[in-house]
Amino acid sequence: MATLLIIDDEKNICSLYKKELEDEGYSVFTAQSAKDGFEILNHNKIDLVVLDIRMPEMDGITALQKMLSNNRNLPVIINTAYNMYKDNFLTWLAEDYIIKSSDLTELKEKIRKILARGKA
């Protein structure tokens, strides 16, 4: 089963996503900062990252750049409350850009599709 990493400074978001995605059958790591996220990435095999942008210390876009420079093939989904970061071409490096919603259907669908493509 695939292993996901959720990076979001909101603790509740992290636990929501962990519960929902584990229900879907994924193995889920969560990190509340980019720094913690890198720690997990270094020690675990991660198949997909869900990344928030507005975070203290290191923002998501910087983190995305760093992540992809380490592993260009790592799929990352940007998940943020804003759509305005779409203007920043660096976000275009990510696999997808999903606006945060309490309805996780879209997110789950995107994860499933990306991971299915990877397998194929």
Binding site: E10, N12, I13, L16, Y17, K19, E20, D23, R54, A81, Y82, K100, S101, S102, D103, L104
Partner: peptide, 18 residues
Amino acid sequence: IAHELKNPLVAIGGFANS
């Protein structure tokens, strides 16, 4: 304000859906 509200709303709504 919207941004600050957004995350808690996502959490509340998400758990309600859950």
